[in-house]
Design a protein around this nucleic acid. Sequence first.
RNA 1: GGAGGGGUGCCGGAGUGGUUAAUCGGAGCAGUCUGUAAAACUGCCGCCCGUUGGGCUGCGUAGGUUCGAAUCCUACCCCCUCCA
Length: 402
Amino acid sequence: MTNLKFGPLLKRGVEEIVVEQELIKLLESGRRLRLKQGFDPSSPDIHLGHIVGLRKLRQFQELGHKVILVVGDWTARIGDPSGQSATRPMLSPQEVEANAQTYMKQFFKVVDKGKTELRWQSEWYGQFTLDEVIKLTSKFTIAQLLAREDFNKRYSSGNPISLTELLYPLLQSYDSVVVKADVEFGGTDQKFNCLLGRELQQSMGQPSQQVFLVPLLIGTDGSQKMSKSLDNHIGIDEPPQEMYGKVMSIPDHLITDYFELVTDVSDEEIVAFKEQLNTRSVNPMNLKKRLAYEIVTQFHGNQAAVKAERHFTKVFQQGEIPEDIPKYTFTAKHAQDELYEVDIAPTLLQKGLVKSNSELKRLLAQGAIELNGKKLSSNITVAQDGDILRIGKRCFVRIAIK
RNA sequence: GGAGGGGUGCCGGAGUGGUUAAUCGGAGCAGUCUGUAAAACUGCCGCCCGUUGGGCUGCGUAGGUUCGAAUCCUACCCCCUCCA
């Protein structure tokens, strides 16, 4: 039974709360809660998938609670073992520092910096002695760790698990002890680690933290969780047009999830959207345009969103030429009046618009290259200053003859 | 210390002497279509050139056998599992 007062806070965009009643008690106590959120500065970019949790943090902050951001400069070295077992290269302290800065810049686009306490793991792990490592490891058993699904899978299917990976959940748990977390936030894939934190806190004489798990956002491919390594992500630092376009490319069935998890659009409206989609009384594209607009506005402001929308309509719906086109210089071979014979290959290669000569040939063969709207069949062509070259569906170049 | 398994293109994963630039799936790209950069369908997907063709590089590394090797041999490097 959810307390009415905290209904939306504890319901929308929430997968699971352990233990919900305990959390409600904490909220009702009027105490300023310490909300722990950890991140590994191994890959610094925040995408929409992360936003789900960050928005929750923000909501808690608005009720006066405090976020403790734990920079996992030590766990980053191990790499979160969830998912693949690829061993990551060790990061240098400089890289970690740079990544952390990039991350935080993005983090504070959503979370209120003034109500956040920043902690680095190195504050405590920097001085950690073997003695303490032994004490920490003695609190856990192998069986306990093998209870974690991905460890279990890997173990029983004969795949390797390194000792350091096993250590990962322990470090994360101990963070909770150090920062005296009341609540730990994470995606559902963090459940095990967070629960372990509860046990460690208890065995070290602290009240157990509550665990607040948000759903994993499905990526633009429509099937797997959003993640940078799967390349199905929408980064919050991406330029407005890119962001808008990527949102438009999500499969239709994700539309309402996205509204629910990463926008402020009201529940009532979302219910209406669902109804409209079910009865096919709305073109999904229009809902997606609204979604894209909401999302771009959140990170780039209203103006940029309007502009991105216009760009989309113009270029992709009406097949017109966009407003801002980069100008590149092409070298002419022969000139006759205002017409020049030009080989477009060198410039395109040099600017990286085309990966290789072979690729250019392929694109030409596939009719993917247009000059002023006319398909080209050869990289040698006749052009004029100011002509527009289109490569594929997204890339436009204005020609400057030299 | 012992026994065994394995390293293939962006990823996964076939292939155990020639017809293999390497089956297949995913990702990516392009085209068609469309109400969208959705879906669907088709094609492309190492590099280079004189492109219905030709050349080069390529299956952990280095050699070797052979007319011919990802496939066989030798050495080396790396990874994993099991027993102790």
